[in-house]
Each structure stands twice: as C-alpha cells, then as structure tokens.
C-alpha cells in the first residue's frame, strides 16, 4: 500500500465521518461545524488530485463564506431543535434516505462504468485543475458566462443597497410606537 493511498483513505474516512456527523448531530451548530470539517477534508482531497484551484475555491467559498453564513443564521434565529414533530422527522428521514440511496446508486453506476472502460487519458485530465489551466479556460472558453456573472453581481449589489437602506422617517423609530408614548 503506497503512502498516497494511505493518505487518501485517512482523509476520506475523516470526510465521511464528518458528513455523517452533519446529518446525525442534534445541535445545528455541531452540524455546521461538521460541515466545515467535511469541506476542509474535501479541499485536501482536491489537492491530492492536483486541483489546486478547486481546493482554494472550496476553502474560500464553502468553508469561508457559506459555513460562516450558516453559523450566522443559526446564531441569529437560534438553533431550536424542536421545529418538527416526530412524525414529520421520520417521514423526511425516510424520503431523504431513499433519495440519497438512489443518488448513490446512479453516481456509482456512472463512475464504475467509466472505470471499466478507461477511455480518457487521466494524466491529461489531471492537468486541468491548476490555477493556470482554470484561468485560461475561464477567460477564453467561458468568458461569456464570466462576464454575465458580473451583471448578476451588479444586480445583487444594487438590491442589497435598496433593501439595506433606511426608509426616510423610519430612522427615529416606528411612528405608531412613538405615537403611543
């Protein structure tokens, strides 16, 4: 057994354990922290596959952005674990498991059928993950979507300004409350 395989198994095991932790832990904050672990170990796996750019994006976007956002929301609205009745919980668990198993089967079927007949040169595919390769793809083949995302961000920016701006007259308190005083 080579060292790289041992490393992969070790990181993969941590990743799987963290993923299980996300769905089984009762505290939402614990789930979020398990999610963080899962994202971090995935990033490590990406690096072992020579996909440095994806690993960096994984850490910055998912671990840095999304998990922090999730934690913010949990802390702001409070992690109440009793939102659902036991019946609803059981129902959603059954459906979730069924869908998850279906997804697992479809993905493993696809992956295994590829593995049986390796047509592409894996070495060439592995070159695609460096920041340089991603950059070249992004600014040539995918330049149109890239520019359109700029428009999307502009919409989000204007929207945040509109929604975040204090309404005139509202800065001194709610009028009806003031009238009662």
């Amino acid at each position: 057994m080579s060292w790289s395989l041992l490393f992969f198994l070790l990181v993969g095991a941590v990743s799987l354990a963290a993923a299980l932790g996300v769905v089984t832990s009762r505290q939402p904050v614990h789930s979020a922290l398990f999610l963080l672990t899962n994202f971090a170990t995935l990033a490590v796996l990406y690096i072992t596959l020579d996909a440095q750019f994806l690993a960096a994006a994984q850490v910055i976007v998912y671990a840095g952005g999304i998990v922090i956002l999730i934690l913010f929301v949990i802390m702001l609205i409070g992690g109440d674990t009793n939102d659902f009745s036991a019946a609803q919980r059981a129902w959603s668990r059954t459906v979730g498991m069924a869908l998850g198993i279906i997804l697992l089967l479809v993905i493993s079927y696809s992956a295994l059928s590829r593995m049986m007949a390796p047509s592409e040169d894996t070495a060439a595919l592995l070159q695609g993950g460096t920041p340089e390769a991603v950059g070249i793809e992004l600014f040539t083949k995918y330049i149109l979507p890239f520019e359109l995302v700029a428009l999307l961000l502009l919409v989000a920016l204007i929207g945040a300004l509109v929604l975040g701006r204090q309404q005139e007259g509202a800065s001194e308190g709610i009028p009806s409350v003031k009238a009662n005083e």
Binding site: Y142, L144, P145, L148, V149, L151, L152, V155, A156, I158, G159, V162, L163, Q167
Partner: peptide
C-alpha cells in the same frame, strides 16, 4: 449553453425579487 441559461435566469429573477418588494 446551460451555464449562460442559468446565469440569465438568476439575473432577471434576482432583479424581480427586489422590484416586487420596492413598495416598502
């Protein structure tokens, strides 16, 4: 192209979400 299609969908959807709440 699927990517362009999805980004286009998001551009107009996001703008419309905000426009529908403009009458605050």
């Amino acid at each position: 192209n699927l990517i362009v299609l999805f980004i286009a969908l998001e551009i107009f959807s996001l703008a419309l979400y905000i426009l529908s709440g403009f009458y605050r």
